[in-house]
Simulated assay, not measured.
Amino acid sequence: MRSYDIATIEGDGIGPEVCRAAVTVLTEACGTSLLRFANFDGGALHYQRSGAVLPEDTFAACNSMHAMLHGAAGLPGVTYPDGTEVGNDLHLQLRFKLDLFANVRPIRLYAGVQSPLAGFQPGQIDYVIVRENTEGLYASRGAGVNLRGEVVTDQLVITRKGTERVAKFSFDLARRRQGAPRDGKRRVTVCDKANILRSYAFFRAVCDEVAAGYADVEIDYAYADAITVHMLKKPDFYDVIVAENMFGDIISDLGAGTVGGLGIAASAELGERHGLFQGAHGSAPDIAGQNLASPVATVLSGALMLRWLGEQHGDAALLSGADRVEQAVEAVLAEGRVVPRDLGGQASCTDMTEAICRRLR
């Protein structure tokens, strides 16, 4: 049996708790012979101690191993001289150095979770937001201009290569899915502001070119402001949404809010050869070390990792493990006996971890 080496970076705040919980669940699902985890330093606290948010040995491990599993990073007041947060720089460095161009955020309403949107039942909200992860407004990271403290500029960057590959990723993903819950149609919605800015008009035009090669997938369009309304009124219409970096960042959190919040929101940052997996929530330092955090988002991110590795390596055991982890999480939530605090219950991080593992057994 083949084995896979996973670099874990526990990070700051609740990061160590939720990362260790995910490792426990993934090991229960796949066994110790299939997955081998090795922990490495990184994050805001490590920066305070050493001056490096992403040490060289940590990056080398991330570059060489099969995948990366991250807890969370960031601490209040730990910033660079320009005011930007140190913690975010951990995954931003990995994102840009390893060219993790597709940020994948599943938005799914699980059984046992109540949506704030009236009338929507489990399964009726089930789509994926694919955010271009290396260009857009965030391409200015560290390169913007602050002129005399009077004029500050950042540039929005859209390239043909960047748009083509994230669009192709999105259409390929739609082909593997079952279509939108409302009508079963495989659909990619392009989120932009093509009516105002040339950069977004170019983004849409390149997506149109890619769409021509996918006759079996419908293309749809939504302006970034209007889609925030549509995601609330007709979330069942969506299958895959592709967006520029900043817009994708914003609507991903909105989508998470419709299915239970960031505590249940998984994410994957994918490139041609590398994958980084972490919950979409922050480090929540106010509850760190108290066993209060929910590990669900990180566990579900771990399931995304198993599925990605399984597809990359043609490994049915990993694909089966991904399905089993997701089913175990949903079964625990649906049962309603062990419910994390962010979903209205009292379960601790340990309680949730043990309940998911019992389901797997």
Rank of each mutant, 00 (worst) to 15 (best):
A355Y: 08
R49K: 14
R160W: 03
G310I: 12
L45K: 15
F37L: 08
L333C: 07
T24R: 15
I125S: 03
L117F: 13
A22E: 00
Q290R: 15
D286M: 08
R359F: 00
T24F: 00
Q327F: 01
I250K: 03
K234R: 14
L276F: 15
D12K: 11
A174Y: 05
P285T: 03
E56Q: 13
P295W: 00
D57R: 13
R49P: 00
Q346C: 04
N291F: 07
D99C: 09
N63S: 15
V210F: 02
C62D: 03
Q114P: 00
C62I: 10
I129Q: 01
A297I: 10
V104L: 05
A328D: 09
A316M: 12
Q346K: 12
V188K: 00
G248C: 04
Y80T: 11
G13H: 10
Y223Q: 05
Q114Y: 00
L34N: 00
V78S: 11
V157N: 05
A303Q: 05
L92Q: 11
S33L: 08
V217R: 11
L90R: 10
R182H: 06
R95T: 09
G136T: 07
E28T: 14
A265S: 15
L137W: 01
T32D: 13
G119S: 06
R341M: 14
C357D: 01
G87I: 03
T32E: 15
D57S: 12
A355E: 06
A212D: 10
Q312N: 02
G136F: 02
R341S: 02
L137K: 01
G179Q: 05
L26V: 07
G255I: 07
T58P: 13
P181F: 12
L262N: 08
P76K: 08
E209S: 10
P181Q: 11
L306E: 11
V190C: 09
D5V: 05
I287H: 13
R204V: 13
E85T: 11
R186M: 10
A328R: 06
S320G: 14
Q290W: 03
I251N: 01
D154T: 07
E218T: 13
A317D: 14
Y200H: 15
L262W: 10
A73G: 12
E135M: 04
D253T: 07
A194E: 11
L69T: 08
A317P: 02
V339N: 00
V113A: 11
V332I: 04
C62Q: 08
G213F: 04
A355H: 07
F101N: 04
G257C: 14
V157M: 12
D239N: 14
